[in-house]
Each structure stands twice: as structure tokens, then as C-alpha cells.
């Protein structure tokens, strides 16, 4: 920022006042309230037990399953995204709004309906197995398994991984690629030594945007897990809806938040300054 601030600049800060009020009212205050719930019992007394619920065997099992789904889905999203973005770059689809359009358009079909469509595709007598039977391939039994939840999660969050990686890779100047080739680098080396490191900020945003929601989703696991497989999101949701224990639900939420913050601290530590805007 500039040293000598003009009169205008200091007055410009005032423009942010409505937003600052908003942040105080709708970001900070709700957090304070949920933390308050998390550390009190029904009688209003201070307690750690709500937070500790996360370590009870049944909840720990949901946490572990959530981690499994989140990690495998995030990795799958990464593995699907890079070839996609590289292919788009290779075919020169980079600068065109058209390619973004292709990635964003599916969001205009309601998200729950899209997941229900996957249920129709993946169910035991569903579309996928019907197609497989045409080729005389034995039907797959993936309905109501972790695999089918993972497919739904990957499907739903793939654009959130692809878009930031796309932005980061399209920002890489073709000159750098040429310079690397000039110095003797082949395609694989260029990817590993130039493109991958330079797309890291985008990759990190992608991980943040996929990992957290995939761990906490409860609709996808509801529909594709057949109601038997519980993610931590399902557990929290039930505390609020069926069990009606808001303190326990808040405790689990805060525990989840702490966990997310810790894992984010690890991934975003590498973030270089001045690149806050990589996400979109």
C-alpha cells in the first residue's frame, strides 16, 4: 500500500463500513453463538463434553468414514482435473469463455436432482448396469456403498477443483513453456517442473473447496449411501433435526471447524502472498 495516503484513499476506507458491520453481524456473531452453545450444556453450565462427543466410538467412526470419502474424492478430483485442464490448454480452449461455461452450466440443474440422477444411474437395476448388460458385463454392485457416495461427491465438487486449477494454468505464460523446451525439457518435465509448481496456488484453493464440503456433505450420503452410511455431516444434521440436541450438534460442529482450520493451516501455509484471488 502507498505510504502517503491521500485524503481520498482514507475516505475510501469508509466505503467498507457496511461490509464491516455485516461481517461483525453475520460472520463473527454467529460463530460466537455456536461456540457458546458448544461449550454449554442444556442448563447453561460450562462443559467440554459436547466437544468431546467427537471422540465417542460411533462419532469417531463417522469422522473416519468422512475422512476416507473426503481424501479419496479430493485425490480423484485432482487426478481428473489436471488432464482436463492440460487437454483444454493443448487444444487452445484456454482463453475462451466457452470452456468455463461447460464447467459451470451443470450447476444450473438442481444439485439434489443431479445426485438423485446418479442414484438412478448407479442403482443395482439402474442405467449403468443396463448398459453393461448390453456388453454382457456382470452388473456392478455399487449402490449404497462408499464408492457410490464418492462418485456423487466427485461429481458435485469436480468443477470446484477444476476452475481454480484452470485459472492458475491458463495464467502460465506460453513463453515459460517455450523457455523450458528450449533448455531441453520434454513434455513430462515441463509438467512436473513448470506447470505443476506454478499451478500450486490453484491446486490448494481447489483442495480447500473440495475437501471441506465433501467431508461435511449430508445430502449426498443420504441419497447415495442408502441412509446406512453416515458422514459427520449426517451426524450433526441429526443432532439438530431428529435428536434435537443443539448443544451436542454445536459441539460437533465446532470440533469439525477446529479440525478444518488445522488442516487448512497446513495446506495454505505454502500460499504466496498477493494471490488471494486464485479461487475464482
Amino acid at each position: 500500500m502507498n505510504e502517503a495516503k491521500s485524503n481520498f484513499t482514507s475516505r475510501r476506507i469508509l466505503l467498507a463500513s457496511p461490509y464491516i458491520v455485516w461481517v461483525a453481524g453475520f460472520t463473527i456473531l454467529p460463530l460466537i453463538i455456536i461456540i457458546h452453545y458448544a461449550f454449554t450444556d442444556a442448563g447453561g453450565a460450562f462443559t467440554f463434553s459436547n466437544l468431546g462427543l467427537i471422540f465417542s466410538p460411533i462419532h469417531l467412526k463417522a469422522v473416519m468414514f468422512s475422512l476416507e470419502i473426503a481424501i479419496s474424492s479430493t485425490v480423484a478430483c485432482i487426478l481428473l482435473s489436471y488432464p482436463m485442464v492440460m487437454a483444454m490448454r493443448h487444444l487452445g480452449l484456454g482463453k475462451r469463455t466457452f470452456s468455463l461455461f461447460i464447467l459451470i452450466l451443470p450447476m444450473w440443474m438442481n444439485f439434489i436432482l443431479r445426485i438423485l440422477a446418479w442414484q438412478m444411474i448407479l442403482s443395482n437395476n439402474g442405467i449403468l448396469n443396463m448398459i453393461l448388460s448390453w456388453f454382457s458385463i456382470a452388473p456392478l454392485k455399487i449402490a449404497n456403498t462408499g464408492t457410490s457416495i464418492m462418485i456423487g461427491v466427485v461429481y458435485d465438487y469436480l468443477p470446484y477443483m477444476m476452475l481454480p486449477i484452470y485459472t492458475a494454468i491458463m495464467d502460465i505464460n506460453e513463453d515459460l513453456i517455450e523457455a523450458a523446451r528450449d533448455l531441453g525439457a520434454g513434455s513430462l518435465t515441463i509438467f512436473l517442473k513448470i506447470i505443476l509448481p506454478l499451478s500450486l496456488p490453484g491446486l490448494l484453493s481447489g483442495i480447500v473447496m473440495v475437501f471441506v464440503p465433501s467431508m461435511t456433505s449430508f445430502v449426498i450420503s443420504d441419497i447415495l449411501g442408502g441412509g446406512k452410511l453416515q458422514l459427520i455431516g449426517n451426524v450433526i444434521e441429526q443432532e439438530f433435526t431428529t435428536a434435537n440436541n443443539w448443544h451436542a450438534g454445536s459441539g460437533l460442529s465446532v470440533a469439525l471447524m477446529i479440525f478444518v482450520l488445522i488442516s487448512m493451516a497446513f495446506t495454505t501455509k505454502e500460499h504466496k502472498e498477493g494471490r488471494e484471488s486464485v479461487i475464482w
Binding site: N173, L176, A179, A180, R181, D182, G184, I194, L198
Partner: peptide, 18 residues
């Protein structure tokens, strides 16, 4: 290019920023 015993100094330097 990677197989040629020729190197280039580019107009815009093209240094690897990372």
C-alpha cells in the same frame, strides 16, 4: 526444440518465477 543444441534468450526474459 528440446532436442536441438540451440538455446534462446527471450525478449521477455521468461525466467521461471518459482
Amino acid at each position: 526444440p528440446e532436442k536441438r543444441n540451440v538455446n534462446t534468450v527471450f525478449q521477455k526474459y521468461s525466467l521461471f518465477p518459482h
